[in-house]
């Protein structure tokens, strides 16, 4: 009854309908679930990697892909998780340094995986949300047909679902680093840890460059 009366009130003009439409659109984009957001970002990154226009511009491709990755990951929460209890003892400057260095390592690792992408299928299975925490479940299907479950743990910050842990076949990435870092922190100093992580990221980057000899030669041609 009440609804009926309301609709007759709303009739008056196309303006109201227009406003309503704008609001509805805003609401759906805001309410886009964790799954859609993770999916959109993954597709964006893969799109950049496979973009034929960027094929000869390696640096540009990497820059754009990194930007897209940065928008979807919460590096600070991830770094905090990887550091573990020692995080509370870090000075704000140390925390920033660590976040920056650690993000660099993960970015390098992620780029490694993404650059070797060759049309594997990704199934977005489900999302589970509990307050500001969520999990997006996906399955990566290799070209041989092996199914690898990959879960993304996401945290809601200002309507955006940001990834803070990646779980492959039940093994948490953050936990892997947390254990290694806590044992390094026991025997050495913070600065040494930073050096180690920097070396590792550098190694990964070099390995990737060596893996792509054809791309390298093309660069020389230019």
């Amino acid at each position: 009854m009440r609804v009926h009366r309301k609709t007759s009130c709303v009739r008056p003009g196309p303006y109201v309908a227009g406003v309503a439409l704008v609001f509805a659109a805003a609401a759906t984009s805001l309410a886009a679930g964790a799954l859609e957001q993770v999916k959109a970002s993954t597709e964006e990154v893969l799109g950049i990697v496979q973009d034929p226009e960027l094929k000869d511009r390696e640096a540009e491709r990497e820059k754009r892909a990194c930007k897209a990755i940065d928008r979807r990951f919460d590096w600070r929460v991830m770094a905090r998780g990887a550091m573990g209890p020692e995080w509370r003892d870090l000075t704000p400057k140390q925390a920033d340094t660590f976040t920056h260095t650690f993000a660099d390592l993960i970015r390098a690792a992620y780029m490694d995986t993404v650059m070797s992408y060759s049309g594997e299928k990704i199934e977005y299975v489900a999302e589970r949300v509990d307050g500001k925490y969520g999990v997006v479940k996906t399955v990566l299907i290799t070209r041989k047909g092996t199914r690898i479950p990959v879960d993304y743990r996401v945290l809601k910050t200002d309507e955006k679902w940001l990834i803070y842990d990646v779980i492959v076949e039940g093994v948490s990435m953050v936990n892997n680093y947390r254990k290694q870092i806590s044992s390094i922190m026991i025997r050495s100093k913070f600065d040494e840890l930073i050096e180690k992580i920097k070396d590792k990221a550098e190694q990964r980057r070099k390995a990737r460059e060596e893996k792509k000899p054809d791309r390298g030669s093309r660069k020389e041609d230019k």
């Binding site: 998780g81 209890p85 020692e86 509990d130 039940g170 947390r178």
Partner: peptide, 23 residues
């Protein structure tokens, strides 16, 4: 349990969100 670095603690009756299943 592998302790984390978050400023908040889980109180009684709370939930541990990050878990790894048995291999």
């Amino acid at each position: 349990l592998t302790p984390g670095g978050a400023p908040e603690n889980i109180g009684a009756g709370g939930r541990i969100r990050q878990t790894e299943p048995a291999v």
